[in-house]
Design a protein around this nucleic acid. Structure first.
Lengths: 267, 267
DNA sequence: AACAGTATTTCGTAATGCGGAACATCCAAT
DNA sequence: ATTGGATGTTCCGCATTACGAAATACTGTT
């Protein structure tokens, strides 16, 4: 048994499960949620919800709008989340290279790690150029399926056959956009190419109109631990551009970061 | 450590209290913590700690290093923390103004809100100029005492006498650096000035060698809901510079943001 | 002023989480 | 390889903890 990441639906502490549902709901509601609503959505009596909220609130995970009395996510989460990000020295080391890459390509640069077989954004650098483009909200913290993103694919490409099989069984290959690869045989082939090439392209597979180019970052043990990418509108990130310059830029930057982490290229 | 504020020391759900202690400890340990250590520090049997960690891990609040088996903060915290930040439309509206301010002054710009009578950093913009200066770690999510920071003081300046009294009683006026104002009468006087002037200066009161200039942001109801500041080394942020340009820049930017939020200046 | 919708508190009950101890696993040293 | 020590993980009977229905206290509205 390859010690799969925390899958154990029994033994769960009820309180933590309930607290987690509450936080999830609050995460979806910028304007906050009332106890009554929470009570309705998680089917639990108001009193119970209230007790949990009191404790969560005392420790800062939740806060209450003094006007509406609605409950909202608390700043303790920002604190802990950013502590985590700052603990990743990977991120610290990569930062200057990411800025440089963004500067040179004038496109948005992302950095991700794989967590529980999903892609999690841990950094983002954009140039002043296209910053005010569309979505200003930072993607940091966001989770995406691995099979439909360039970053995810560069990481999946290093999975063993069995790991990949598990991944597909566990997560499935949901169709996120028109070009998403949803066939497992096709994905296997595709990943073989990705691995050989050393980079991956997301050709509107995750979001219509968006193309990305990604390359993996290796630690000193040669293990892929993260990935970086350049993303932008398909009309700017053309296939020609990718071949002529972008793929080279991304791969070179990824290699520099890997080397910074102690990786030595082997022949 | 005892973050007393939202009153209710009883009624606390034990599990949440314990889970919170665990997360706090993990937050202090970039390399992770073993069950044994946790068990020792939080004086609870290994079995108990393990059970809590399993649940926390299942929901993503904690992750386990597959090599060392140590436990670390989980990416769910990054996810929720950033959801919260992106929910603050205050932040969204302010962003372009902050960038502009950073660009024009070539110094680091911060934005904070008051949470439980402490300052919490919710945004930071730095120019490429001094970015590689010293501390690269983002301050986002960080908490600071209100009485020793420029941002904090501009917000305290709008407290009623009673609110201020409560604040001082609850939090005290800890000496953070040589110039920290630790006398409550003196603080009262100082805040009166801050309010009259419309801006506050942190003259190495929080950290040796660092000066900051801050101004408050008002919502449409005229209530101060946040503050912004410019910070930098004392040799660059001279008192002369503050008077000649910086205070004006900060105040003007703060006003623009306030207006963006619907604030109308009243005479 | 009365009402309606909510948030909060109470309190007797049993289910939940507790934690000591057994078991498994990993790693280092022989 | 084998052993031993240390740590992580699981088990299970017990009592404490959290439960949740209902009563009470708000808060704003007509």
């Amino acid at each position: 048994m390859p010690l799969n990441r925390s899958f154990k639906p029994n033994n769960l502490v009820q309180t933590i499960e309930r607290a987690s549902s509450i936080l999830d709901l609050l995460g979806q509601s910028p304007q906050g949620v009332s106890i009554r609503e929470l009570s309705a959505k998680i089917k639990l009596p108001k009193g119970t919800i209230h007790r949990l909220l009191s404790s969560l609130s005392y420790f800062g995970y939740v806060r209450q709008d003094s006007k509406t009395r609605n409950y909202l996510l608390g700043f303790k989460l920002v604190e802990l989340g950013n502590l985590l990000l700052n603990q990743l020295d990977l991120r610290k080391e990569a930062e200057p290279f990411l800025k440089d890459l963004a500067e040179r390509t004038k496109e948005t640069v992302h950095m991700v790690v794989l967590d529980r077989n999903e892609v999690v954004y841990i950094d983002k650098v954009e140039t002043d150029q296209h910053t005010s483009g569309l979505k200003m909200a930072s993607r940091i913290g966001l989770r995406n399926p691995a099979h439909s993103s360039a970053v995810g694919k560069t990481l999946l490409a290093h999975f063993s056959d069995e790991e990949l099989k598990n991944f597909i069984e566990e997560k499935g290959l949901a169709k996120r956009a028109e070009n998403t690869i949803t066939d497992s045989a096709q994905l296997r082939d595709h990943l073989k190419n990705v691995r050989a090439q050393g980079y991956a392209v997301d050709d509107e597979e995750n979001e219509k109109g968006i193309r990305c180019v990604a390359a993996p970052i290796y630690n000193e043990g040669g293990k892929p631990v993260a990935a970086i990418s350049i993303s932008g509108p398909a009309f700017r990130i053309t296939k020609k551009m990718i071949q002529e310059s972008i793929k080279k830029e991304v791969m070179e930057t990824a290699l520099k970061i890997s080397q910074r982490l102690g990786f030595r290229e082997r022949k």
